[in-house]
């Protein structure tokens, strides 16, 4: 798997590079700012770009803008954005194009290498990886008038895990229930939220995220 990394702090850039190489990925470019990221993506056509939100020169959201621009220029490029803080507006903007292959994680998640590498693989494969904190913010945003308020606590839990990008099996393992029970919860959730058929895979997750991210 070919990876481009955009991170201005050398310490983290080297760390992430090492982490991904140790896990059998090929880091084809490690750049320091947004313009270089867009160039590298156009040149290298990587499977995934791991991007820090905050890059020079403004140190605000240059990484996010560059990631969205790279996806626009090279459609289908998977993007995993890492950030010191999670901001739901960033998540909503990332999800806005309705395509798969996006992830948005706190930088902290790098501290758990196995999970981080798993998230990189999932996103590169066209899935998604949303930080639990982002999902929490998106759910909270819906307010009391939303159908989300009608979900049972268990259904909310399943919805959160689904939104993080986890598979049915992973959800079942996490909640210590059977796959069938998870399927049942999911169809209940989709019914309550008025979403179309739950046809499995990452499209299901996208539907949930699009629902949470919209208005």
């Amino acid at each position: 798997m070919r990876v481009v990394i955009a991170e201005d702090l050398a310490l983290l850039r080297d760390g992430i590079t090492r982490l991904l190489r140790d896990n059998g990925m090929e880091v084809v470019a490690a750049v320091e700012d947004g313009d270089a990221l867009v160039d590298a993506v156009e040149r290298e056509r990587p499977d995934i770009a791991v991007v820090d939100v905050r890059l020079p020169p403004g140190f605000t959201d240059e990484g996010l803008r560059a990631a969205i621009e790279a996806r626009r220029r090279v459609p289908g490029t998977a993007v995993l954005v890492v950030s010191q803080y999670v901001e739901q507006v960033y998540a909503v903007e990332l999800l806005a194009d309705g395509q798969g292959g996006v992830g948005y994680l706190l930088k902290d998640r790098i501290a758990d290498p196995a999970e981080f590498v798993d998230a990189v693989r999932r996103v590169a494969a066209g899935g998604s990886a949303m930080d639990p904190e982002v999902v929490g913010q998106l759910l909270a945003r819906r307010g009391r008038a939303s159908p989300v308020a009608d979900l049972t606590p268990r259904e909310r839990e399943v919805l959160s895990l689904m939104a993080e990008g986890r598979s049915n099996a992973a959800i079942a393992a996490h909640l210590v229930v059977s796959d069938g029970a998870v399927e049942k919860h999911i169809s209940n959730i989709f019914g309550k939220l008025g979403l179309g058929s739950a046809d499995g895979g990452h499209r299901r997750v996208l539907a949930v995220l699009a629902y949470l991210g919209s208005g």
């Binding site: 605000t60 959201d61 901001e87 945003r141």
Partner: peptide, 22 residues
């Protein structure tokens, strides 16, 4: 930081998202 690049509404959105009260 979000206050600088996305403004007050976005920053308040994050505050609200982190709040335990609707």
């Amino acid at each position: 930081v979000v206050l600088t690049d996305r403004g007050l509404a976005a920053a308040i959105g994050t505050l609200a998202g982190d709040s335990s009260v609707p």
